[in-house]
Write a protein that binds this DNA or RNA. Sequence first.
DNA 1: AGGGTCAATGCGGCCT
DNA 2: AGGCCGCATTGACCCT
Length: 143
Amino acid sequence: MGGPEDGEDGENGTPRPKRLRLSEEQTQLLEGTFRKNCVLSHSAKEELAAKVKLTPRQVEVWFQNRRARIKLRRAKNECKLLRQRFKLLTEENQRLQQEVKELRALVVAAPASTITMCPRCKGVTSVAGTQHCSKTPDTNLGL
DNA sequence: AGGGTCAATGCGGCCT
DNA sequence: AGGCCGCATTGACCCT
């Protein structure tokens, strides 16, 4: 498929050509064009290829790889965010498990007649006379 | 030495 | 059928 520079494919014994490294100027031109549009029309590709002194195929490959790099970077970022979220949810889960444990202990320890429903969080029990929710009624209106 | 980067290749799928 | 693209992979090169 249109080998680098001279078009040879490097098969049947001939050593594979060294990897081309684009100059700063070439990269800047390609990058600038990519920023405007990440896909190239046929004519734009020809034009850009002439400008950066590469073959249209090399320009095409550069754009393909550039798109792949963007996708990879996004995936890595997303992975990082998901890990952070997972960590936070794990911590919250641990807190809630602990709270459940404490509430269960409370229910077991208290005589049934002393247990009342918490008016704020409904459904979670509290021992009469003790405060269950840490928030005051006024500050709890938001939820 | 080994991992990361990047130009290049090969292949399959889609479109016209 | 031919061109283009996405994707996986390769191999040279760079950095630590």
